[in-house]
Amino acid sequence: MKTRFMVAGLALLAVAAVSLVAAEIDLEGVKCIMNPKAAAKADKSLEYKGGEVFFCCNNCPKGFTKKLEAKDKTVMAKANHQLVATAQAKQEHCPFTGGPMNKELTVDGATVKFCCNNCKGKAETMDGDEQLTALFGEEAWEKAGFEVAEAKKSDTK
């Protein structure tokens, strides 16, 4: 009987911890990585790069995992974009040059900073997946020095 209460208490504590972490992340306007027409939900997430990425249903994380295994550049860029849009990741440098940040542009809810108007202008001439991959793809992610903020990490998932 004591074991049953202890297990139930631990399960309740885990659910509360997950809820608190998800509450820190504002998902208003954030779309599912796999289904961009659907809203991301706090209870449909996976750990990614030390943060959490969010989906609309239970099937999307499975598809996301398969795309990651296949090294799908667009899906990786969309996941990185979501980390920035949810304020889990912070940028240190221009994604094109690696230089200091002076100009900024908001791309689907995520603010990206650039070293100059030339880099910002280059980003503005792109759209869709081309823009996401150029600004949030793995090469840009490294060059820009994006880091997932420690305060947003969830050790409960």
Rank of each mutant, 00 (worst) to 15 (best):
M1L: 14
M1R: 09
R4G: 14
M6L: 14
M6E: 09
M6H: 07
V7N: 05
A8H: 09
G9L: 05
G9E: 00
A11H: 11
L12Y: 10
A14K: 10
V15D: 12
A16P: 06
A17T: 11
A17S: 10
A22M: 14
E24D: 15
L27D: 01
E28C: 00
V30C: 00
V30Y: 02
K31V: 02
K31E: 08
K31A: 09
C32T: 02
I33L: 01
M34I: 08
N35G: 10
N35V: 13
K37G: 15
A38G: 06
A38Y: 09
A39R: 04
A39C: 02
K41I: 08
K41W: 15
K41V: 10
K41D: 10
K41G: 11
D43H: 08
E47K: 12
Y48W: 07
K49C: 04
F54W: 01
F54V: 00
F55N: 03
C56Y: 03
N59C: 15
K62L: 13
K62R: 07
K62S: 04
G63W: 00
G63A: 03
F64D: 06
K66I: 08
K66C: 03
K66T: 05
L68R: 05
L68P: 00
E69M: 06
E69Q: 13
A70S: 12
K71C: 08
T74A: 14
T74C: 03
T74M: 04
V75N: 03
M76V: 13
M76H: 07
M76K: 07
M76G: 05
K78M: 02
A79D: 02
A79M: 03
A79W: 04
A79T: 05
N80L: 03
H81W: 12
L83K: 02
V84D: 15
A87L: 15
A87G: 12
Q88S: 12
Q88W: 07
K90M: 10
K90D: 10
H93F: 14
C94N: 02
C94I: 01
P95I: 06
P95W: 07
T97I: 05
P100V: 09
P100L: 08
M101I: 15
K103H: 12
V107G: 00
V112C: 08
V112Q: 11
K113I: 09
C115S: 03
C116K: 07
C116Y: 04
C119M: 03
K120W: 11
G121W: 09
A123Y: 01
A123W: 07
D127M: 07
G128W: 05
G128P: 03
G128F: 02
E130P: 10
E130F: 06
Q131S: 02
L132P: 01
L135Q: 05
G137L: 00
E138G: 06
E139R: 06
W141V: 08
E142Q: 07
G145A: 04
F146A: 01
E147W: 11
V148L: 06
V148A: 01
V148C: 00
E150G: 03
E150N: 12
E150D: 11
A151G: 11
K152R: 09
S154A: 10
T156D: 11
K157D: 14
